[in-house]
Design a protein around this nucleic acid. Structure first.
Lengths: 105, 105
DNA sequence: ATCGTATATCGCAAATATACGATATACTAG
DNA sequence: CTAGTATATCGTATATTTGCGATATACGAT
């Protein structure tokens, strides 16, 4: 697991907030192909959330995809991006184990 | 606390490994101005650890300093960089709270 | 076949990151 | 005062990131 690469992917306000919103389900999807319970949205949803251009959003999502934090699935017209919960969880476990200072010092 | 900025600072192999080494005390200091218990090293120590040029290391440390992960203290000739344990701990708490998926889904 | 929608990719510009050597600064030792 | 050591900063080259508009692709609907 390339920790620095994942940190790098999260090292951008737009991307960090998006991943947080996805996890917190504070971003909603207008694409009726995604169930509420799936931690997923379409590209257009992120465009609405961020106000950025569609091409810019596609790029940001590609960065998160490459880092492994997202998984993509084509559902008819929509590209649905799912939070890769396993990778995210593993990342958090690892960063805690790597960087959590020992108690008392 | 600017989470994306800290992730960005950690989003580089050299810097991530250095912070990890500092926390794990797997980097040793040759500068006898630093106690073993202080989670700190001099610039030269990082040069030795990484093999990078001294100017490059200075820059990396400046990035970590700016992000708040390090604290600098001049001790005679040496610039001693200390792990900012409070910031690191707060960062880990925050990232867990921001991104840890709820159980069962 | 054509149109509209959703998205990825291309081309580009500006900004930032990464690395180095050279130089400046600051301080210690003699 | 001079020499040496440790480090920060400058100048520079190159690569990457970030953003946009334009275009290409894919597919559903008509």
């Amino acid at each position: 697991m390339d920790m620095a690469a994942i940190c790098c992917a999260l090292g951008n306000k737009t991307r960090y907030q998006f991943i947080m919103a996805l996890k917190n389900e504070t971003i909603s999807t207008c694409c009726d192909r995604i169930l509420v319970t799936e931690y997923a949205v379409s590209v257009g949803d992120v465009v609405k959330m961020t106000g950025l251009a569609q091409s810019t959003v596609s790029q940001h999502l590609a960065v998160l995809l490459k880092a492994g934090l997202l998984r993509r699935e084509k559902r008819e017209l929509w590209s649905c991006y799912f939070l890769n919960i396993q990778v995210l969880t593993e990342f958090l476990n690892q960063i805690n184990s790597d960087l959590q200072p020992k108690t008392t010092k």
